[in-house]
Amino acid sequence: MRCCSALVGRLRRAAPPVLRPPSCPACPPCAAAGPASTPQPAAKPLQAARWSDLPGWNDDDLAAAWPAFLQSCRALAKRPQWPQWQAVCDEARGLNGAATAGIRRFFESRFQPWLLTNPDATTSGLITGYYEPLLHGARTRAKPFLQPVLGVPPDLLNIDLGAVLPDLKNMRLRGRLQGNRVVPYFSRAEITAHEKDYLDRVLLYVDDPVELFFLQVQGSGRVRLPDGQTVRLAYADQNGHPYQSIGRVLVDRGELSLEQASMAGIKQWARANPGRVNDLLNANPSYVFFREQPINGSDGPSGALGVALTPERSIAVDPRYAPLGAPVFLSTSQPDSTTPLRRLVLAQDTGGAIRGVVRADLFWGFGAQAGNQAGRMKQQGQMWVLLPPGAAPK
């Protein structure tokens, strides 16, 4: 589950109701419009493009994206079924340390850009941001550390549907056994109401239920312990229930305006309404489980590709349309701004809220400043996937 801005992004993507005015003499009857038009087939998600189509391609410091690209190659090298990637990654390793001009020639000679295109043939989509937060916690439960962070429970089933039906590739079913039937796993409200059943799965206790909720939204984070040690928590699994924006809930209840329903606004509401926080959080049935992960220097958390994320150069995507590991040229704008943000990034992560062809979540890094950028990012943008010849999905 990724996407800090999904809290508000889902609100802004919601289409307003269609208001139909009453009939009037100036409006011809519908029948006069003629027969209904034939529905147009959905546009292909990948449209061949030229390098000159990528705005700002010649201005980006590609050397800043090179370490992230080599990280992708580490993962792609383990997939012998993709020989096109093997060749370009072997060549890339020989170019390590090259300047931006040499890297640009490498991509232009070894890759083909493809414009990601929505089913309705539009090419713009939502670009949000996420980050790695810092929480405060302890190994044992004692005030103020009362909120358990859970590892994966043993009764949670995670079924790869693509292994049963190839048409269901990249789709998974989560549930639990009830007798000889698979039924939905417990919701957030059910899990939190029966915490005593999960005592053997507790990794840590943290001091704030809202911060823990946002940790689950981000998918990974760090926890500082009383002795000064810091541990990293990484996404391990999810209960299978759909994500519900609590910002949307507060807006629907009339508690906050759309403009107030940011991460900061939700935290402010929680401080003013401590007795209602659990009810609000349980309005989202989704629940994320974690695992501990080593912190290796300044490396970011591991994404869905299995490599460390690079701040401002890694994105989460919908892997049905943008292959994990692939370079992506992103053209959008800075958070809450019209200042262009155009750069090469790598598709190295996924997220429960990241669904659709032109859709990305930019990883901003660790800490409060990264959180500020991620929380404000709800921009429109375009995306070009760069693929070796012959690697484009059919």
Rank of each mutant, 00 (worst) to 15 (best):
T350E: 00
T140N: 08
A99D: 15
D160P: 06
L116H: 07
R320W: 09
A374D: 05
G247E: 12
E190W: 14
S124Y: 04
S37F: 07
T122E: 06
T230V: 15
S262N: 02
W82G: 03
A121C: 09
T350M: 01
S220E: 12
A75R: 12
C73N: 13
D59H: 09
G162V: 12
A138K: 08
E132R: 08
P83Q: 13
P80Q: 09
P80L: 14
A6H: 02
V223F: 07
F363Q: 01
G306N: 12
E190P: 03
A353L: 00
D90T: 15
P133Y: 06
P209Q: 15
L168C: 14
V288C: 06
N158S: 11
D155R: 08
L7E: 15
P226M: 14
R355T: 08
L173H: 13
A42N: 01
E108Y: 07
S302Y: 08
S331Q: 05
L134A: 11
V8N: 05
L7M: 13
S302C: 10
G356S: 04
F69V: 05
Y198F: 15
E190T: 15
P209K: 07
V231S: 06
G34Y: 03
W66L: 05
C73F: 10
M1W: 08
D227T: 11
A138R: 10
L168A: 13
V8G: 04
A272F: 02
V164W: 07
G356M: 01
R110H: 14
A326M: 01
D160Q: 09
N118T: 06
L70T: 10
T310W: 05
Q216W: 04
V357E: 00
L362Y: 02
L324A: 02
Y243Q: 12
F106D: 09
A42M: 03
A193K: 14
T38E: 08
W82S: 12
N284M: 08
C30F: 10
A163I: 11
